[in-house]
Design a binder for these strands. Structure first.
Lengths: 140, 140
DNA sequence: TATTGTTATACTCTATAACTATA
DNA sequence: TATAGTTATAGAGTATAACAATA
């Protein structure tokens, strides 16, 4: 029996390809680590999301998330706003430049992934996303 | 447009699930990091594979691979043999205990992944592996 | 000259523990 | 007591550069 039957291994191998594609098309041009791009995009999709929720979504600890938010905040890409309803919490928001940057970055990434995966049929790409989301739904 | 359409993001999210499954079923019981398990299994599948080939397969540098091989070697799970045909190179081999360990670990992992993905149909699992391998084939 | 592998080194990323503030 | 977030700290994993040995 072989690694080829291990989903986790195949996910990593495919991730090497998409990761390299990300670095070339978005990471280097925009000076964004994958996690930084993801944080910005998640805030864009869910305004007022909290650091704790972000940390859970990306399977990291809150101190790690604090460090990433510090970096992005220093670059004026996002802002921390105090929650009114709960004085302990924060609501994250993109700055205008953060919003503009992530919007362009996402468009570039969609385009470069489309190029990268052009040899897959439309059905295959849809099927892939669907199955991956089913697996992700197992997240505890 | 959303992260849900980004294959790289969905791969990471699914990887969080399979990674947690690996840690629970194999990583902790056998005290193996994912990369360590993968190295052992790749040697098992390709006896006499070289450190350089392993490093390329796993998208890491040779100094990093040296460190992992040192660790596994100290645990007597593998051996470095000098290549006869090329005095610069090495041929990696599993020890008896390394071979036994990775064989059991792989069986456990296959079983725990089968449980984890029981909600996917057989066709979905086959389709997933097939598409991921097509993406991996893009590796440069 | 190019390649294989190692050593030395520093940097990035991470987690744990201890803390503050609020609920 | 529990939760949100930060700070301090140490450890894991990484890459780059310099090296030795062989091709």
């Amino acid at each position: 029996m072989s690694l080829n039957r291990i989903i986790g291994y195949q996910l990593v191998q495919a991730g090497i390809v998409t990761g390299a594609n990300f670095m070339h098309g978005v990471g280097k041009p925009y000076k964004l680590r994958p996690v930084e791009f993801t944080i910005l995009q998640l805030i864009r999709e869910t305004p007022h999301i909290s650091p704790t929720t972000l940390a859970k979504t990306l399977a990291m600890t809150t101190p790690s998330m604090t460090a990433w938010l510090d970096k992005l905040s220093k670059r004026k890409l996002l802002m921390r706003e105090k929650s009114v309803s709960d004085g302990r919490g924060q609501k994250l928001a993109l700055t205008a430049s953060g919003s503009a940057l992530v919007e362009k970055a996402l468009a570039d990434l969609l385009e470069s992934e489309a190029m990268l995966l052009a040899h897959l049929s439309l059905g295959e790409r849809e099927m892939l996303l669907e199955i991956l989301q089913k697996i992700t739904a197992e997240k505890t």
